[in-house]
């Protein structure tokens, strides 16, 4: 579908923090997506969750958009940060908090 790249690009650029995931933040349908949700919620970051299971074009389109073959995918201020492994590693190293702060995204949890 021609419009899917445009849809994704719009989501990425109009939301400060957006997570493409399986399921929703309230009900993740995959353990990897669930881990990223837990980390973002722990940090108290406002983000938009986009459920790729809702649309096959979206599910495939997001992989093409970032040239990244797996889901979840986290974007901050229009920039791809990584999937579950990278987000978790950054969080454990304290780098995710500073990444958000460096981008001017409010983090409620003191690091």
């Amino acid at each position: 579908m021609a419009g899917i790249g445009e849809f994704i690009d719009n989501e990425v650029k109009t939301n400060e923090v957006v997570l493409f995931m399986k399921g929703t933040p309230g009900f993740p349908q995959c353990g990897f997506s669930g881990q990223v949700v837990q980390i973002l919620d722990y940090l108290g970051v406002d983000y938009k969750g986009v459920n790729v299971l809702a649309d096959d074009d979206l599910r495939e389109g997001i992989k093409t958009y970032s040239n990244w073959p797996t889901i979840p995918q986290l974007y901050v201020k229009g920039e791809f940060v990584g999937g579950c492994d990278i987000v978790r590693e950054m969080f454990q190293a304290g780098e995710l908090q500073s990444h958000f702060e460096g981008k001017g995204v409010a983090v409620k949890q003191a690091s």
């Binding site: 990897f32 040239n67 990244w68 073959p69 797996t70 791809f80 990584g82 999937g83 579950c84 492994d85 990278i86 590693e89 950054m90």
Partner: peptide
């Protein structure tokens, strides 16, 4: 960096990821 490392592994396993390999955790 982290992204480049993961991309390198994903690229090496592109055929598998396009086939039956559904999830890949990389360390």
């Amino acid at each position: 960096g982290r992204l480049a490392r993961h991309r390198a592994v994903n690229d090496a396993l592109a055929d598998e990821l396009a086939g039956g390999l559904h999830a890949l955790a990389i360390e």
